[in-house]
Design a protein around this nucleic acid. Structure first.
Length: 572
RNA sequence: GGGCCUGUAGCUCAAUUGGUUAGAGCAGAGCGCUCAUAACGCUUUGGUUGCAGGUUCGAGUCCUGCCGGGCCUACCA
């Protein structure tokens, strides 16, 4: 039994996430966590909301609420939706937790002790009307290069020229539109990532089995231009973790907070501390997952995220950990995903384009979405959601191949033998042959799941389902029942046992349906089929069952057209 | 501008890392079955692997150029 620590990139607090966000981190992480648990491993699966930063402050202001209150509410909303999707976090924490405050300040203190923090005085744009410093992207003006009047302070979206906010003609605040801007001197802390460049480089080089997407992004940042740059880790904001050196004040940094990208990954650790506290456990309980000197030596740590998060997880966060000089666990495997597009364009939170998690759940049960998203996960390149593809794939895979299999065998049994696993007959050569085929495919499925090859896993699982229909077609119990009732009884018994087997194998993908299948079979035996022959005798003759409701109703053309129209425009 | 990824059947994707005749699922066609959600099974039609060159006994795979799509480029997160 292995010990596996799993984290999903933590979703930002300013609103409900769309399906593209879900498929890039939380959902595949949940698939892996459920699989690892099903295999009997000890798993700690953590996620949280990422609550700091300018967008959170602005979203709260827009909602007319204090930012702390807004974040607390949105955390509850996101937690509820996560439950709705069956995301099996051991804990869903908050980056604003007291635990994260302490740990973030602790790491900053250690980094300072080790000479890896430097103070930098810089000049930044301050908006008098907004009462705040403005990040470059929150300053708008006319592009000096092309004359576009909505150029942002970091780059002109029209001509793509890189800009400095002071380059803009007639600059204004993107928040309030105010032109009452001035440049003020302010002091910030920088993490000396450049000093850790060689350590990080060697570490990345040792990760030969990571996705190319992951290592190429890391390499680019390490070697591009002058190499890895130091990064500012503080901001002039109200909402965030106050800058402290461990538990001590940091002279000159009063009123400043840590930058969200400094404290967000540390929340992975703090979340474990939150989990322990919520479980009534002591410090040692979470440290054995995170401190290699306190029991985490045998932990395998896997992270899941979209490609946009890769630099922070391959460089910034490892720099924080390595730089602390303390024996914290570094990530062992980093699974990154491309983007899911929506009907010819990108999903967009800011533009309200696509299907959002709450809307998805309002339309269909989570398992429909889980199956489609995972079986189309954007692993090798960006992938695309279309309603036609969604309807066709879900109807075929879930309703026809799996759902109908369960229907045909349970209903046939009920009509010929009653709602009891029939007695009589024995498994013959056909069943033995199928057991061998199943075993081959199950072993392949395990290999793909362990390798986090999501699409291939789904493909293999579907092939396993299809074997059931092939078997029934060949066995034809509706024929043998007339000539050789014992033979028919054995065939039906085999088919009913396949339902239980499928429930177990499918549980990482479609947990709610798997549970319904086990319930219909009136069993709580969800043990993984190491011995496939034994697994197919788990339900003995005489065992009662229930014919379940249709597991997956088909998506009709009318529904699809209605949804297509409803989600064509921006979210209302 | 620079870097990285990507282009394979009508659609969505594979191809053991340079090795026989490029494979699956869906959609299409034909046949079979009648237990089942008009479901299932079997058979089958689809390819000049974006284009043009090159290296090699051999290229979807490596190199060069061109065309298209995407991402990143460090103060959104």
């Amino acid at each position: 039994m292995a010990r596996i620590l799993i984290t999903s990139a933590i979703p930002y607090i300013n609103g409900i996430k769309h399906l593209g966000n879900l498929v890039g981190s939380q959902l595949p992480a949940d698939l892996f966590a459920r699989y690892c648990r099903a295999r009997g491993h000890e798993v700690l699966f953590l996620c949280a909301t990422d609550e700091h930063g300018t967008p959170a402050e602005l979203a709260a202001a827009k909602a007319g609420k204090p930012v702390a209150e807004y974040c607390a509410e949105m955390h509850q909303v996101q937690a509820g939706i996560a439950r709705g999707f069956g995301l099996s976090f051991d804990h869903f924490g908050r980056s604003s937790s007291p635990q994260n405050h302490r740990l973030t300040q602790h790491f900053a203190g250690k980094l300072a002790e080790n000479g890896l923090i430097r103070e930098v005085s810089e000049r930044q744009v301050y908006s008098v009307a907004d009462g705040r410093f403005l990040p470059d992207r929150y300053i708008e003006g006319t592009c000096p290069n092309c004359g576009y009047d909505k150029a942002r302070g970091d780059q002109c979206e029209n001509c793509t020229k890189q800009l400095d906010p002071t380059d803009l003609i007639d600059p204004r605040s993107a928040i309030s539109g105010s032109t009452d801007l001035e440049v003020r001197e302010t002091k910030h802390l920088y993490l000396r990532q450049s000093a850790l460049k060689d350590d990080l480089d060697r570490w990345i080089d040792s990760k030969t089995d990571w996705p190319i997407l992951t290592t190429s992004i890391a390499k680019k940042w390490l070697h591009d231009g002058d190499g890895l740059q130091d990064r500012g880790i503080t901001r002039d904001l109200d909402w965030g973790i106050p800058v402290k050196k461990g538990t001590e004040d940091w002279p000159g940094m009063e009123g400043k907070v840590f930058y969200v990208w400094f404290d967000a990954p540390i929340e992975y650790i703090a979340c474990a501390a939150e989990w322990a506290e919520a479980q009534g456990l002591d410090e040692a309980a979470w440290q054995r997952w995170w401190r290699t000197d306190k029991g985490a030596g045998d932990v395998r740590y896997v992270q899941f995220m979209g490609k946009d998060n890769v630099p922070f997880h391959t460089l910034s966060f490892p720099a924080t950990i390595l730089g602390s000089g303390e024996p914290w666990k570094l990530v062992d495997h980093l699974k990154s995903f491309n983007y899911l597009n929506y009907d010819g364009g990108q999903f967009s939170t800011s533009q309200g384009r696509g299907v959002f998690m709450d809307q998805a759940l309002a339309i269909l049960p989570a398992d429909y979405w889980r199956w489609w998203l995972l079986s189309h996960a954007p692993e090798s390149s960006d992938s695309e959601f279309t309603w036609e593809n969604f309807q066709a794939a879900v109807n075929k895979d879930l309703a026809d191949v799996l759902g109908n299999f369960v229907s045909r065998i349970t209903k046939f049994c009920r009509s010929k033998f009653g709602e009891t696993v029939p007695e009589g007959g024995e498994y013959g050569p056909e069943e033995v042959a199928l057991i061998a085929d199943l075993a081959d495919r199950i072993r392949a499925y395990e290999g793909f799941m362990e390798g986090m090859e999501v699409r291939k896993s789904a493909q293999e699982l579907r092939a396993i389902w299809a074997l059931g229909n092939e078997y029934l077609q060949a066995a034809a119990p509706w024929v043998t029942v007339k000539t050789d009732p014992d033979r028919a009884a054995a065939q039906v018994r085999f088919g009913l046992n396949l339902i239980r087997l499928y429930a177990v194998l499918s549980s990482p993908f479609i947990p709610a349906t798997s549970a319904a299948m086990l319930e219909a079979m009136r069993t709580d035996n969800a043990s993984w089929p190491g011995d496939v022959a034994a697994a197919l005798s788990a339900l003995p003759p005489g065992h009662g069952f229930t014919v379940p409701e249709v597991l997956f109703a088909k998506i009709t053309d009318e529904q699809r057209e209605e949804w297509q129209a409803r989600f064509a425009g921006p979210r209302g």
